[in-house]
Nucleic acid binder design. Structure first.
Length: 261
DNA sequence: ATGGTTGCTTAGCAA
């Protein structure tokens, strides 16, 4: 894979079955090498792998009924697939899927939302993030080529939130959860988007309600975090806001990053 | 700036 580019994308689709036509049309337009999906909301048996196969993408899936679910669609072979964190914690949610693609290790990540600060779901979110850090420490080194792609349900900085004063009391931008992301990143992870974009007001998620998207009332909670061993190879990073437009869109936009390997 | 939607699965939950 030396000397070739790897275009990696990630998209919380909020049900792959409800979004199938949009996703295939987007794949045809963008032709990424890899697309990580979150919130597929479908069992592995019912995942529309044949449809993606017809578009040239192999499906690697880790799903469950109704909720959560992650997948990796790839035009290149995927090897060394891992599902979940394989630690001692009781956790039935399908939120982490890894595979080796084109000279990098790629994870599709769906961090728990957390619902409300102080709730059980919130504690689960914080614990899950701590477990992910432990997973990285156990299985990887920061000088390896690894990228975590997905819906982190955390906005890293003030410029990633349209109204920080309001959102800092919520699960998406509370100081505690921002600190959890900082701690995760201290493994040696770089927010690839910020290698190539400085401006605020660039978001990846907008609430379905209250005309949030046309008013650009959003947050940047979908991230591609690359190890410091891979980040220098990141030559471009973007958010495809176009894909959020119109009726029948996911509430998240796809994000992209290009790596020169 | 949490009323206001969407997608499960079937009235309520999760996001």
């Amino acid at each position: 894979m030396e000397g070739s580019a790897l275009l990696v994308a990630s998209w919380n689709v909020n049900s792959i079955r409800a979004r199938l036509e949009r996703v295939t049309a987007w794949l045809d337009r963008q032709r990424p090498d890899v697309l990580c999906l979150q919130e597929t909301k479908v069992t592995d048996e019912a995942f529309p792998a044949e449809t993606f196969g017809a578009f040239g993408y192999e499906s690697t899936v880790f799903g469950q009924k109704s909720y959560n679910g992650v997948a990796i669609l790839s035009r290149l072979p995927v090897e060394g697939v891992t599902r979940g964190m394989d630690d001692s914690e009781e956790d039935s949610s399908a939120r982490l899927l890894g595979g080796n693609v084109g000279g990098a290790r790629i994870y599709s990540v769906y961090v728990p939302n957390g619902q409300v600060v102080g709730s059980e779901a919130w504690e689960f979110k914080l614990r899950w993030l701590a477990r992910l850090k432990s997973y990285l420490l156990l299985h990887h080194r920061p000088d390896e080529r690894v990228v975590l792609c997905g819906d982190f349900n955390i906005a890293p900085e003030e410029r990633d939130v349209y109204n920080p004063q309001f959102w800092k009391s919520t699960v998406l931008f509370h100081p505690i959860v921002r600190e959890a992301l900082t701690d995760l990143s201290s493994f040696g992870l770089v927010d690839t988007f910020r290698l190539h974009n400085e401006a605020g007001g660039l978001y990846s998620w907008w609430d379905y309600r209250a005309m949030a998207f046309p008013r650009n009332l959003g947050l940047r909670i979908d991230l591609m975090l690359a190890t410091r061993g891979l980040a220098p190879q990141c030559s471009a990073a973007s958010i495809d806001r176009e894909a959020r437009k119109g009726t029948g869109a996911s509430d998240h936009a796809p994000i992209l990053a290009r790596f020169e390997l």
